[in-house]
Amino acid sequence: MLCSMWQVAANLGCGRGYVSRHIEPDCVERLALCDSSPSWLEQAAAPEGVLVERHVIDEEGLLPFPPASLDLVLSSLTLHWVNDLPGMLARIHDCLRNDGALLASLFGGDSLYELRSSLQLANLERRGGVAAHISPFTEIRDVGALLTRAGFTMLTIDTDEVVINYPSALELLWDLKGMGESNAARNRTLHLGRERLVATAAIYDALYGREVEGRRAVPATFHVIYLVGWKPDASQPHPLPRGSGQVSLKDLYRLDQVIRDSKKVPLESPDEHGKD
């Protein structure tokens, strides 16, 4: 359940409404569902009690919102498809009101590393070279810099690894195609070929295969990056001026003594325990 005090929110890349259906009317008054697929947009679940509008958008272009018109922007596992991610973050920043927030997740750079290495080895073995078969991902070390460059502050970035077991690489490739997460790079090889496909499955199993509940399986790792960024506002907390600190970091090992000496925080005496 997603809940805070927002008036106007937008869900970019809403898909079939996997996120929007969990938004409560006590938290969001108006919600804009946005996706590049008209059919998915029509299927997106609308939360009860929330005023919903739908927009077919091109995530590479301008957003259909005036500047400073949104309190919250949500995006779940869609930003990794944006070619101009710095530009997209800047456009989101422009659409947010002061103290508005961006809450998003995207696949990170370590996603599907097992499949990528298996495809590279299969290409080296069969063709003597390497070809791109998986779209590039954003590295977590770059996310903070991109958000700061776009103007966001009070950043929170976290990561998670989701490992899913498949009978073989063939079922994984079939699943990726069904998810719409297959390679979309312009210079990609359009046809993998049966020979390299079988070689990829064999290498995948040899390198990463294992027994799971009595059956042979191969893992597929999805590296998910979660991020929160806020548009600056005067009401937000700010760091103290440089040089205003009164406690050195080298004294952290004796923090209790420092607090006692500074008398900033009164310590409870032993005889006060148990008193009302």
Score class of each variant (00 low, 15 high):
Q236S: 07
Q236R: 08
Q236F: 01
Q236W: 00
Q236D: 07
Q236K: 05
Q236I: 02
P237H: 04
P237E: 02
H238N: 04
H238L: 10
H238G: 02
P239V: 06
P239F: 15
P239S: 09
P239R: 07
P239E: 07
L240I: 00
P241V: 06
P241H: 05
R242D: 15
R242K: 00
R242P: 04
R242I: 14
G243N: 06
G243I: 02
S244E: 15
S244D: 14
S244Y: 05
S244I: 04
S244C: 06
S244Q: 14
S244W: 14
G245L: 07
G245M: 08
Q246E: 12
Q246P: 05
Q246S: 03
Q246H: 00
Q246I: 07
V247M: 12
V247P: 04
V247C: 08
S248G: 05
S248M: 02
S248A: 14
S248T: 05
L249K: 00
L249A: 11
L249Y: 01
L249S: 12
K250Q: 11
L252I: 08
L252E: 01
L252P: 02
L252M: 09
Y253V: 10
Y253I: 03
Y253E: 15
R254P: 02
R254N: 12
R254G: 04
L255R: 04
L255Q: 06
L255W: 13
L255E: 02
D256K: 15
D256Q: 10
Q257F: 08
Q257H: 11
V258S: 02
V258Y: 05
V258H: 02
I259Y: 04
I259G: 00
I259C: 05
I259M: 14
I259K: 01
R260E: 15
R260V: 09
R260M: 05
D261L: 09
D261W: 03
S262A: 12
S262P: 01
K263M: 10
K263T: 07
K264S: 06
K264F: 11
V265G: 03
V265M: 08
V265N: 13
P266I: 10
P266F: 13
P266H: 14
P266Q: 14
P266S: 14
P266K: 13
P266T: 14
L267V: 10
L267W: 04
L267G: 04
L267C: 14
L267S: 09
E268I: 08
S269C: 03
S269N: 03
P270W: 07
P270I: 09
P270S: 09
D271C: 01
D271Q: 12
E272Q: 12
E272G: 08
E272Y: 10
H273R: 13
H273A: 11
H273L: 15
G274V: 10
G274N: 12
G274C: 15
